[in-house]
């Protein structure tokens, strides 16, 4: 049963209606995750550095923003970005982009805290050493603090990317045709095989996330 189910729907599960210019399925899941992952990483780095180097006022407002973002379920944030931003500002952003924005925003908030903690974990002595060498605070950050700090942070970055990949499934609630959504469409049509359909979906995510975890570990191992 599982085989025919997979055979009949494999192309749709993998890339949606790509031939008609509407990528979907696993391809869209990977696309959303990659885009949001890059944005979240950049945002997290910028946020973490700002939380370290910024003026007290900037730090305070950033901290509040990060805390609020961390306290809202991703589902709610997606609702906000998808349905309410267009109403509030009269701009229409395609569904895929709003999901990318929501995921990037929330993961950047998490990452900026990891980056801040990673920088803080590098001892005060290193900053003083930089100062003794006549470096400015920014030069010290760039050349002395960040390289080891980033190495230490790598595991938490990898964890966050995995979280993001999994959370991209929430695009389901707003009808963006990523993997989980496409799978529920098929489940709704086939009607009597929910266990098989969602089983296949779980296995696919498992392979993706485990692959990411494994290559992340290797990367972390090599950079030591």
């Amino acid at each position: 049963m599982m085989l025919t189910l997979l055979q009949d729907n494999l192309d749709y599960l993998l890339w949606g209606n790509l031939a008609q210019g509407q990528p979907g399925g696993l391809l869209l899941t990977v696309g959303i995750s990659l885009a949001a992952g890059v944005l979240a990483t950049l945002g997290g780095l910028a946020g973490g550095i700002a939380l370290t180097m910024g003026s007290p006022r900037l730090k305070r407002s950033l901290t509040v923003l990060v805390q609020v973002l961390r306290a809202i379920p991703v589902l709610m944030l997606i609702f906000w970005c998808y349905f309410l931003l267009p109403i509030l500002f009269g701009i229409d952003i395609p569904g895929v982009l709003t999901v990318i924005a929501a995921l990037a925003l929330i993961n950047a908030a998490y990452l900026s805290q990891s980056v801040q903690a990673g920088i803080a974990a590098i001892g005060k002595g290193q900053w003083m050493a930089g100062a003794a060498l006549g470096m400015t605070r920014w030069q010290t950050l760039r050349h002395i603090i960040l390289p080891p700090a980033l190495r230490h942070m790598l595991p938490s970055f990898i964890n966050q990317w995995i979280t993001l990949l999994k959370d991209s499934s929430l695009a389901y609630v707003v009808g963006v045709a990523e993997f989980t959504f496409v799978a529920t469409q098929i489940n709704n049509r086939e009607q009597v095989y929910p266990l098989q359909v969602f089983g296949i979906v779980a296995i696919a995510y498992l392979l993706l996330c485990s692959g990411l975890e494994w290559s992340g570990r290797r990367l972390a191992g090599n950079s030591r």
């Binding site: 998808y82 349905f83 309410l84 267009p86 109403i87 009269g90 229409d92 569904g95 707003v174 009808g175 045709a177 959504f181 469409q185």
Partner: peptide, 17 residues
Amino acid sequence: LVPTNPANRIPLLVAGK
């Protein structure tokens, strides 16, 4: 076509999607 479920119909319209 924008795929929708019942609950998303009005929000899609009001949000201009």
